[in-house]
Amino acid sequence: MAIILKSKKEIDRMRRAGLVLRDLFDLLVPKIKPGVTTGELDAFIESYIRNQNCKPSFKNLYGFPASACISINEEVVHGIPSSRQLREGDLVKIDVGALYEGFHADASRTFWVGHASAAAKRLVSVTAKALDAGISKAVPGNRVGDISSAIQTVVESEGFSVVRDYVGHGVGRSLHEDPQVPNFGFPGQGPILRVGMTLAIEPMVNEGTHEVILAEDKWTVKTKDGKLSAQIEDTVAITEDGPFILTR
Rank of each mutant, 00 (worst) to 15 (best):
M1L: 03
M1R: 11
K8E: 11
D12H: 06
R16L: 04
R16M: 07
L21D: 01
D26C: 10
P30I: 05
K31T: 06
G35I: 07
L41I: 14
L41G: 12
F58Y: 14
F58E: 13
Y62T: 07
C69Y: 11
S71H: 08
N73S: 14
S83V: 11
L86S: 13
G89S: 14
V92A: 12
D95G: 15
V96M: 03
G102T: 14
G102P: 09
R109T: 02
T110L: 07
F111L: 10
W112V: 12
H115M: 12
K121Y: 04
K121P: 02
V124H: 01
S125H: 04
A128G: 11
L131H: 02
D132R: 12
A133I: 00
I135A: 00
A138L: 02
V139G: 02
P140M: 06
N142H: 04
I147L: 03
S148C: 01
S149H: 14
S149M: 05
I151S: 02
Q152I: 00
V155T: 07
V155E: 01
E156W: 00
E158V: 00
G159D: 05
F160H: 02
V163A: 11
V163P: 05
R164Q: 15
V167F: 09
G168T: 06
V171I: 14
S174C: 11
L175G: 10
E177D: 12
P179H: 06
V181L: 01
F186E: 10
P187T: 05
R194S: 09
V195D: 06
L199G: 04
A200F: 05
I201P: 02
E202I: 05
P203Y: 03
M204K: 12
V205R: 01
G208E: 03
G208Q: 05
T209D: 08
E211G: 04
I213W: 08
E216S: 15
D217H: 10
W219C: 04
K227M: 13
K227A: 08
L228H: 01
Q231P: 03
V236K: 06
T239C: 06
